[in-house]
Write a protein that binds this DNA or RNA. Structure first.
Lengths: 152, 152
DNA sequence: TCCATATATGTGTATATGCACCTATTGCCA
DNA sequence: TGGCAATAGGTGCATATACACATATATGGA
């Protein structure tokens, strides 16, 4: 029964929840001029000093080309720089600018408010547990489907 | 310490996990020509027979205008119809077409495979629990921030 | 040394998502 | 009944995300 029961679709559940949480964070971050995703990128860049596009994309569980696109507005606004690595000119290093550091600091209070508001509604302890679960999901390896006849 | 610790940002955790799960579902759904979100919309429409834009958006925890945009390719491909309600011409009713029903049925196996693959990696019981948690998050009410002085 | 291959990234296109602003109906009330 | 507020949607713009395809650089073996 209930072959089409939406409540059983894992992806739909993830998307609905993420949309709801995004709405909260983006609303509070709006005055700072940063979106949630943009702030996450800046935070990753700040923590790694300088990483390549590929490294950054992997850390964000984001498609490499999506990251390239997402970096555009950040470069345009002078928050990050993207320059070829001098040892391997195929790679590019993403670095936070002074302005990027400032913007990140400037958005800190709004982010804190979003965190507090979420955790007031959902529970701080529950939030911490859920974050761990979500990080686990983000790192999941979904193997290829079982072939009809295994070799050997 | 760790004021910028990314692992503590709830939104980032949600986004990473959702991207990962989306990648799995979209990969398996690709042959059917449907994206995960598109399938979710068709499922909701199928279950409600005919709902308005607003009702559908609320059910999907999706901004009204985002849904309008998302419906465009589905209309173009003849999977749904959107027509003014005859009793209240402000409202529009979204309905599944025969072709939409077929497409939904056609994508059923791929969706089932995605569900199975996710649950093989994450655990079926854990997935069921997580879905409940995510639905709860999607329905959260984040009140306005506490004013400095409560009335009375 | 030269070229095939592997690695790292960018571009164009399509969908996903939400905000600001605009239009069309409906309801209500003076 | 005339008109304004409330309700339901749409459009344009900007960002978010990923795939197919194209480009540039590095590497290793013949």
């Amino acid at each position: 029964m209930a072959r089409l029961d939406t409540t059983r679709c894992n992806l739909t559940a993830f998307r609905k929840a993420t949309r709801r949480v995004s709405q909260l964070y983006d609303e509070l971050l709006a005055p700072s001029g940063l979106r949630g995703t943009q702030r996450a990128i800046l935070v990753h860049v700040a923590r790694s000093q300088s990483s390549t596009i590929g490294e950054l994309a992997a850390a964000l569980v984001l498609d490499r080309t999506a990251l390239t696109h997402n970096l555009k507005p950040l470069q345009r606004d002078g928050l990050v720089t993207v320059a070829a690595d001098k040892d391997d000119r195929r790679s590019k290093r993403v670095r936070l600018t002074k302005r990027g550091e400032s913007k990140l600091a400037e958005s800190q209070d709004a982010w804190r408010q979003a965190q507090d508001r979420f955790e007031a509604a959902f529970g701080a302890r529950q939030a911490a547990e859920l974050r761990q679960t979500l990080e686990l999901v983000a790192a999941l390896e979904f193997g290829e489907p079982m072939p009809a006849a295994p070799p050997g």
